[in-house]
Amino acid sequence: MAEKSYRDAIREAMMEEMDRDPNVLIMGEDIGVYEGTFRITAGMLKKYGPRRVIDTPIAEAGMVGTAVGMAMLGLRPIVEMMTVNFAIVAADQILNHAAKVRYFSGGQVDVPLVIRGPQGAGVQLSAQHSQTFESFYAHFPGIHVVTPGTPADAKGLLKTAIRGKDPVMFLESAALYGMKGEVPDDPDFTVPFGKSRVAREGSDVTIVSFSRMMQLSLTVADKLSKEEGIECEVIDLRTLRPLDMEPAYASVAKTHRAIVVQEQWKPFGAGAEIAASITETMFDELDAPVFRVTGEDVPMPYARNLELLATPHEEHIVRAVKRVMYRS
């Protein structure tokens, strides 16, 4: 075990897998000579050469489409999106090609493709560069959607993604890149998809979340425990597709109250899916409706004060917890 940043965990996962399997290659905009806007790929071009570290034109559809073609013939391309916002330019390639080929071919090909990059708000990038996309991609069958919330998960889940047989949207939280945590050194350390975890135990309210909002939920849970004696159980979903709700259900059976925290807009978001699943499955255990804590329903503004107003904060989570406890 060593303490590593989320960013280094991602970088390490890719390099270990490139060392392990010559079929793994990485492509993206300015990842080679420029060494990446977040410097996650720094030094890789020198180490692996231009065949395996491909600087692409600014052409997301072309980039993903060619990667799908590579993957169908057995390579394991990792496509770095400078930010996940740009991937919607390639939505047709991701959703109508990568996610569908296995099915409409009757299972004749694998598409081992990882599309990864940072997403989320927080540094005044305004409307086009601050979005989160987990529910957008998780809506579609045929693709995995991964949302790591710790450095160890970032590494372990990315390795599972690269070694897999299916397209993966690997959605990193830009705001967590600097976050440090213990990461196992074992080069074969992986974290399986579809295994949610209890990030913090508690008996009063279940908080279901993922990625950065899971970290925020943990902060709030500690604060509520210290200041108000309220014990929150925090469930980290880790992957939204496949989605493992069992730990959340078990938790709700204990606490009888749940909230969901997501950075994304409220309508038709991941939180809605999670809340509905809890209600469908655990209806008789609920003592309060499942509330959602989400970003505000507006394009992300630029001004710092407005941006802060648009994103979920500690007090939003506190308010929701108290609401389901009938303490507000």
Binding site: V64, T66, G69, A71, M72, G74, S105
Partner: peptide, 27 residues
């Protein structure tokens, strides 16, 4: 779709398969 005989697919989105072919050639 008949991968064994070299057919890597008919595609329904006009032109969507063009990058796939380029990527396969690269592979």
């Amino acid at each position: 779709f008949d991968a064994a005989n070299g057919l890597y697919g008919g595609y329904g989105i006009v032109g969507g398969h063009i990058p796939l072919a380029a990527g396969s050639a690269y592979a």
